[in-house]
Design a protein around this nucleic acid. Structure first.
Ligand SMILES: [Zn+2]
Ligand SMILES: [Zn+2]
Ligand SMILES: [Zn+2]
Ligand SMILES: [Zn+2]
Lengths: 164, 164
DNA sequence: ATTGATATGTTATAACATAACAACCCTATG
DNA sequence: CATAGGGTTGTTATGTTATAACATATCAAT
């Protein structure tokens, strides 16, 4: 899916030990599911594993194709239900701009995510952001429940090549 | 479409002279199209008028239904092309969260919009926001081209009623 | 008249998402 | 034990959003 392959998948566009990313996220998910008394079933776990393979966002049908290839389900609701569970539990975030899903970079604590999306290679980095609408909301009396923050642009690697 | 009708359509959730909103936006669009030597055709103008009827976001197919009823086009590309033109010109913004479109509150100058979306009545207010990812981007070397900022919650009017 | 640029009309399909119901698998609780 | 309930998965069908591709129309410049 990336137009720009890299040996080390980047987190925040920086090379890192991605195996650690994956195992840490899975371990956290295991712990949280146990603590919350919710079932981390094979389909749910496998979907999270699939999303953890890279720091790119996958569409629900991409995930479904993977599940299908592994005999874990072939119909859209299977993928959408697993994704909904993972989003509910905070293990996965939905990227509105892409109609796609990405594993959370740090599921161990609740947070409101923000993303930087490289339009060239598809890498998505999760970041922290201040509430950008706090002032406007306070002035108008709007009660914010959730804020989508998604920046699109070029990651450091992709700025080097010609992308007009 | 609103679950909560109001006599005066709000801008920024405050009552205002909406007729002025509409005529100002249309006049600005006229001027800018002339200045830019682009064609403000009947379909394009009508789509903008339709979006200017309220401060709610309309889906492309909602717009299309209106066009169809008026004999201005019945196939999806007609609506999508007009919307793409209006978005390109900055007269309309796309709300990613809703897969829908809304007329710009101030098309007279280029800006990066932010929105507050009431989940109860569907009203969308356009606001200004600081770049919430400037720090993260600077640190990681990410080059931001565009940022989606969409807050969802309850507008002042809708906080009064029970919405659990 | 011919060409080129821009816009619209139309067909068909791709891509994303959910409603609704049936079946399965646990684990209480009687 | 059975059997009822909650949660999960399987499946069908459909709804919703979006675009590719090609045909036609319009108008201005050569
Ligand atoms: Zn990683
Ligand atoms: Zn996260
Ligand atoms: Zn108004
Ligand atoms: Zn605007």
């Amino acid at each position: 899916m990336a137009r720009h392959d890299k040996s080390a998948t980047p987190l925040g566009f920086a090379a890192h030990d991605h195996t650690a990313c994956q195992s840490r996220a899975l371990a956290t998910a295991d712990q949280l599911c146990a603590a919350r008394r919710v079932q981390f079933t094979p389909v749910r776990r496998r979907v999270l594993e699939i999303l953890l393979e890279s720091h790119e966002a996958l569409g629900a049908y991409d995930v479904l194709a993977r599940l299908n290839a592994e005999g874990l389900g072939s119909k859209p609701p299977v993928a959408y239900r697993a994704l909904a569970f993972l989003v509910d539990q905070g293990f996965v975030h939905r990227i509105e701009r892409l109609n796609a899903f990405i594993a959370c970079a740090d599921p161990s604590h609740d947070h409101s995510p923000a993303f930087m999306i490289c339009r060239a290679c598809g890498t998505v980095a999760e970041a922290h952001a201040q509430m950008p609408l706090g002032d406007s909301a306070a002035r108008s009396g709007f009660q914010i429940e959730q804020t989508v923050i998604e920046a699109e642009g070029l990651c450091p690697d992709c700025q080097e090549v010609r992308t007009p």
